[in-house]
Simulated scan of single mutants.
Amino acid sequence: MPDLILASASPRRAELLLQIGLKFHVQPADIDETPASLETPEHYVERLAREKALCVAREHPEKLVLGSDTSVIHNEEILGKPETPEQAVAMLQALSGSTHQVLTAVALAHNKECWSRVVVTDVTFRELEAEEIRAYVASGEPMDKAGGYGIQGLGGIFVSSIKGSYSAVVGLPLQETAVLLAQAGHPVNQYWPSTKESQR
């Protein structure tokens, strides 16, 4: 595989790539993430994932570059990362006892070409107590996460059900990422280690 670059500073995305046996470099992309006027959430996350991948790929045209973006949608509103503890509390109060959508796009750029996929996952929260919302916000975990929670962290106890891709909610849809790499001629399983016994 040509050198793989993850165009994201997210430690969660890096952990997911390591989980499927990939080696890569990290080079976050610097792009404007402002939603366009009348832009749908699906178009927004896909556009950002593609722009991130293409931004870094322009510097490294010979390498494969993965970009990704995640948005939490509740009542047709995009919930970004909370900027204050008060915003985090408000987001969690809104998500309490309801179902929201997590939209995650992944894009793979190489030699000026770019392929992308969007994954939609339904996540349902149980009713949250005011005290646990305060404790969760005080932990600091919500502050760098879309929608104000991390399903793979402390916030996992709030989730009563999930319909769709768990890894996409964490930040990177692994199945779709593997498909894009395979379509580019680099199936993930080619890079998995094997024991000597399995090689006989």
Rank of each mutant, 00 (worst) to 15 (best):
S165T: 10
H25N: 08
S116A: 15
E15Y: 06
L6A: 11
A109I: 06
G97A: 13
E131I: 05
V26W: 07
S139G: 10
L48K: 04
E62W: 07
G171E: 08
T99Q: 12
T34L: 13
G140F: 11
Y149P: 00
R58H: 11
V45L: 15
N189K: 04
H43L: 09
S167C: 13
A36R: 12
E113I: 08
I151W: 00
Q183W: 10
E39Y: 06
K145F: 05
H100P: 11
T34A: 05
I157H: 15
D32W: 01
S139V: 08
V45G: 04
T195V: 05
H74D: 00
G164L: 08
K145D: 03
P2W: 05
T121Q: 02
D144H: 10
I157L: 13
L108I: 14
L128K: 08
E59A: 14
G155A: 06
I5S: 00
V169P: 05
S98M: 05
G67Q: 01
M91G: 02
L95I: 13
Y166P: 07
V119M: 03
N75G: 10
E131Q: 11
Q27L: 13
V179C: 12
V72K: 02
E197G: 00
I162V: 15
V106M: 05
R117H: 13
A135V: 02
A36P: 05
S116M: 09
T104D: 10
